[in-house]
Design a protein around this nucleic acid. Sequence first.
DNA 1: CTTAGCACTCAAGGAGGGTGAGTGCTAACA
DNA 2: TGTTAGCACTCACCCTCCTTGAGTGCTAAG
Lengths: 339, 339
Amino acid sequence: MDERKQQILQALIQDYIATGDPVGSRTIARKYDFGVSSATIRNEMADLEEMGFIEQPYTSAGRVPSQTGYRYYVDFLMKRRPLSGDVKKQIKGSIVDKMRETDSIIHVASKLLSQLTSYTALAVAPSFEKNSLRYIQLLPIEGNKIVLVIVLDNGHVEHRTMDVPDSLKGEDFQYISSILNKNLKGLSFAQWKSGMLQGINFEVGYQKKLLNQVILMIESALKKEYESKVYLGGTLNILNQPEFKDVEKVKVIMELLEEDKILKEVLNTDQKSGVTVRIGTENVHEGMKNCSLVTATYELNGRVIGTLGVLGPTRMEYSNAFNIVEFITMAITEGINKL
Amino acid sequence: MDERKQQILQALIQDYIATGDPVGSRTIARKYDFGVSSATIRNEMADLEEMGFIEQPYTSAGRVPSQTGYRYYVDFLMKRRPLSGDVKKQIKGSIVDKMRETDSIIHVASKLLSQLTSYTALAVAPSFEKNSLRYIQLLPIEGNKIVLVIVLDNGHVEHRTMDVPDSLKGEDFQYISSILNKNLKGLSFAQWKSGMLQGINFEVGYQKKLLNQVILMIESALKKEYESKVYLGGTLNILNQPEFKDVEKVKVIMELLEEDKILKEVLNTDQKSGVTVRIGTENVHEGMKNCSLVTATYELNGRVIGTLGVLGPTRMEYSNAFNIVEFITMAITEGINKL
DNA sequence: CTTAGCACTCAAGGAGGGTGAGTGCTAACA
DNA sequence: TGTTAGCACTCACCCTCCTTGAGTGCTAAG
């Protein structure tokens, strides 16, 4: 693969990404000044095809990048123009603005990502393996109802309402709360054991049924946090891509996007730090064989805690997507670590 | 409009709804046994066209119902087969299951509605004009953070986290909570006045800044409930309708479905009790001119508090949609009133 | 190695013709 | 007066044929 072949491949892919039409030898000779005729380009293109980097949709159409072609482009040829200061400012601004909770950072980031790339943004919010209980409180409200307030390590608060017997009073709840805190504080979902009820039961000595219910609710709250959430941004951007003119194709992708499980699978494979580009069938899911996914991870204390990225057609503006995904995850990492 | 014309119109609309193809005179003569020849049907159809109930896509195609035709069908011709016992049971079951909060009832109902009709379901959750505060509690958690727990009349609980000065202690929060409850309990968002802070300030006598912040958060929680939420179910069902084969059309509807404001407008116009059918341009929104909307309201203590319905193409199974929407809203009304 | 020239390929788009579902009209019939 | 058979007519749809043009591969000369 000599210098000129690389240049031609690069020109071809860039042209194809920009226009969406198969690119012919004459187009390349005209638009990009290689100082050789179209015939020469033609010879080179024949070689590139034989090498598997480009292909013809049909005899006598122009050439189109193959999956290997895109791969080579992303790995070696792609020029990475740095992001404009404006965009950088916008990203930093939006993310710093929403610094209260990791959840809302990720939410904002995915919206932003879809706007900046005009593809669909995906993000999995952190699944802290160790996301432990910080504080529990049973709070009586009116009638025979209480609110169970559950505070987690990451600052997230959950609440649950439940009915209780009339006989219980304010002090009871205070007492039960303190026992619960003593026994459960610091526990993560992974450490949750079914046997723990006994100890508490012994200590409290009454209201087993109520305790049981409370424990279940705390477990559900922990589990909810433990199971990472998926955020989407700009789902409808798909409809603007000419490769999705066919409603059937839209359906495949849209259905995929509604399945949190699949999205988590897709995003969580191979969580190395840095930006990952997965092209066409490199994606684990069958329905994404005509799509590419550009993802990156963000970290807390040097450990990967979540992934975010954009989904577009294989004919994607890799360079731009790459830059933006990279910068946003960096901003998030920075933000979270300050939190 | 004599008997026979009505029968022919009915047959034509039913056939068109079922098949989606323009219906010719011969088809009607063959399929539906009127005991007259196609030529006679033809004459009748010519009359019906002149009267504006049906139209021809082009010369020598069959006839298709016009908007007025559908209107007439819905108002006078539509046969309403009662729902099967199974479906009724399913609806009752699902809705009774989720009786904890009005929000979740509506959520479940919209999923159910979309499944049963295979159209897209829309619902606005109750916008209680009078959705008042029942209970407020400042709950210190670790560090200098507190959780503000806000309980509303409809059983909904909201929480907010906030930072407070280190100097405050548990008793302070208890005290402030009780003052807040005394002053604000029973207030709805509509009754919220900016002046109310003074009274509380006077009574508490310190921590003006904190109080101010708390009041703002309570206001935001009330407002959030006051602003009715919109639920969607089965958005992707649109993609199965042959009238939405064109991605551009899908885009129009999908974009519309992402705008809560528009959906509220569309759903909230003309809140009479009972089922409302809005066909084509009868809908307030331009983008829905090829769609029909079948809605009904649910009530609490005899007052309309919310709307729910299905959105489909004008060529919609009106009868089925009508029945299901009617039954679900009845079930919800029943459920809410028991709550 | 490069290039001009040329024959070849094939999708896309337009023209032409056949088919069939459907219509409107008319004249005859009950 | 309503119904019907018959007939000419219309027009979307589909198929085929043809042209066009962008693009290719190959070859021989520079």
